[in-house]
């Protein structure tokens, strides 16, 4: 996951923007895929089948968030990652000439575990959950009611105007609880809640 150091206007406060895949409800990438290698599941997750991908990179051109990456050369997979065979749910073994992206770790969710980005965040800034349960959880083990969190903290989504219906919400900095970029020791400061519908 790339973290952007954003500053929307010359006089506005800078902020960090961690960017996962937004698993849009109207995903431009899945629209344009000529072979159905990238697809949206009923649980809302957008995945890539790298055994079908032809490497045309149309999805990369179509994604307005520039989330997708491409295996330009043969990937160097850790041996442990490849032992269980391939599934779009974990994407290993990766294949040269195919597209990949953040997948919300659906294999972890099956085990009831948070995705790596969320569980690894020391600030507990990245929340993840099942929208059907109306709850999100962070790495500190806190679980909050999603609808209330989004309402109380005035959550917004990236590039809402493009009509992609992203499934990731951002919580604006709340009295700058954390230092912004360049203000102190840098840690992603605004809270992010990644939400997946199952």
């Amino acid at each position: 996951m790339r973290v952007f150091r954003m500053q929307d206007g010359a006089d506005t406060a800078p902020y960090w923007l961690p960017r996962p895949c937004f698993h849009c409800d109207d995903p431009p990438c899945a629209r344009v895929c000529p072979v159905g290698a990238t697809f949206k599941r009923d649980d809302g997750i957008v995945l890539i089948d790298n055994e079908r991908c032809i490497g045309c990179r149309f999805c990369m051109a179509a994604c307005p968030y520039s989330v997708r990456t491409f295996n330009w050369s043969t990937p160097n997979d850790p041996a442990a990652a490849t032992v269980r065979g391939y599934s779009p749910e974990w994407g290993y073994p990766r294949r040269v000439g195919t597209t990949e992206k953040c997948d919300f770790c659906p294999d972890m969710a099956r085990e009831g575990k948070l995705p790596h980005c969320s569980s690894a965040c020391p600030m507990g800034a990245i929340w993840f959950g099942d929208e059907n349960e109306d709850a999100v959880t962070n790495s500190h083990g806190e679980t909050l009611r999603l609808s209330k969190l989004l309402r109380d903290r005035a959550a917004y989504r990236q590039l809402e105007e493009l009509g992609t219906k992203p499934r990731v919400y951002y919580l604006p900095p709340d009295n700058r609880h954390y230092p912004g970029p360049g203000e102190a020791a840098t840690t992603p400061g605004n809270q992010t809640s990644a939400v997946v519908q199952r």
Binding site: C33, P34, V35, G36, A37, R52, C53, I54, G55, C56, R57, F70, N71, R95, V96, G97, T98, T99
Partner: peptide, 16 residues
């Protein structure tokens, strides 16, 4: 231009 020219027939078998 394709990353996987070996799979060009997917356009026919799985074309959308």
């Amino acid at each position: 231009d394709m990353g996987r020219p070996d799979r060009v027939l997917n356009l026919i078998f799985h074309g959308r």
